[in-house]
């Protein structure tokens, strides 16, 4: 074939942009994480590992790591299991499956920031629908009895619901005990529909003959067929779903910035928000860059784990 110059023209713009917009920034961040640079300064000083030491030692950053990991450890398992569960239920329905699929996928499409405000208002301690509904149950005898465990002969005051009726219900986003959980709840609400759709795609890829074979082999109950066929056949989907959900939940920003700004008392101080607050709002580029680098490290670790699992299952096909 005649060598043409076309390939060069085709790939060069992409290569330049990749270097400029993806690779160079990583090096810039890596370099600046060892400096005390601020935007507007004429120069900077090398400060060695000071920024990383700060991340390791200061309590606010410790809280950041704890909050980020807690958030991921709440959101990932729950949204993955909800995604799998709803996919299994929907795929086994005789009718109406498409409807649930559309409904559960809606949050994936919707502007998260806008929906965050709606949740904020829904969870408002005074005029929010959630607390209003909880409160209204306190006056209905059987609801109160059921939820406080009174019907089991328990002391209503020791139960969560009885306590809420007596002392009012949580402030949710304003209470450091509940804020991270509430943000995580919104994250789960938003993410599980995506996982569901991935699992649905994974399920359609499981050959029907395999289920029939397992039935012939004596797997009589749906439970046995699930563990013999469905679960292992979804292996590649599990790996992908868990990785992408982890990476996405590490990146959560919209809800934190709009609803809690990291508070109360740093209980929702998640990594990307911390990076934004330190690096961009407070112009502490060094610390912000160090957070960037650590964040990239997490993402890299997650992806390499994924690659490891994908390769281990190479003999599927």
């Amino acid at each position: 074939m005649v060598q043409s110059r076309a390939p060069i023209w085709f790939v060069t713009p992409a290569i330049i942009l990749m270097f400029l917009l993806l690779i160079a920034p990583v090096f810039v961040a890596a370099t600046l994480s060892f400096t005390d640079y601020s935007l507007g300064d004429p120069g900077f000083n090398w400060v060695g590992a000071e920024n990383y030491e700060a991340l390791a030692n200061r309590s606010s950053y410790k809280k950041m790591f704890i909050a980020s990991l807690t958030y991921v450890l709440i959101v990932v398992p729950i949204s993955v299991l909800l995604g799998l569960g709803s996919a299994l239920l929907i795929s086994s329905l005789r009718f109406g499956g498409e409807l649930y699929k559309a409904v559960f996928f809606l949050p994936v499409m919707a502007t998260l920031l806008a929906m965050a405000f709606v949740w904020e208002f829904t969870l408002d301690p005074i005029v929010g629908v959630v607390n209003e509904t909880l409160r209204s149950g306190c006056d209905v005898g059987w609801v109160y009895s059921l939820l406080t465990g009174l019907w089991l002969g328990l002391d209503p005051a020791t139960s969560w619901y009885g306590h809420g009726c007596a002392e009012d219900f949580p402030l949710w986003l304003g209470d450091k005990k509940y804020a991270l959980g509430t943000i995580a709840f919104i994250g789960i609400w938003q993410a599980f529909g995506f996982n569901m759709v991935l699992y649905l795609a994974g399920l359609t890829a499981v050959p029907r003959e395999l289920y029939q074979a397992s039935e012939m082999d004596g797997a009589d109950s749906a439970w046995e067929r699930f563990w013999l066929v469905t679960w292992p056949m979804l292996g590649p989907t599990h790996v992908f779903v868990v990785t992408i959900t982890s990476i996405r939940s590490f990146q959560v920003f919209d809800t934190v910035e709009a609803l809690t700004r990291g508070g109360p008392s740093k209980s929702t101080y998640l990594m990307i928000y911390a990076m934004f607050e330190k690096g961009i709002q407070q112009n502490l580029i060094g610390v912000g860059s160090a957070i960037t680098i650590i964040f990239l490290g997490f993402v890299l670790a997650l992806t390499l784990t994924q690659v490891y699992f994908v390769n281990r299952r190479v003999h599927y096909s």
Binding site: Q212, P232, H315
Partner: peptide
């Protein structure tokens, strides 16, 4: 009864 399937339907993970 036992059945042999067209695609063999072997469990790929086992």
């Amino acid at each position: 009864l036992a059945m042999v399937f067209q695609s063999y339907a072997l469990y790929p993970h086992l």
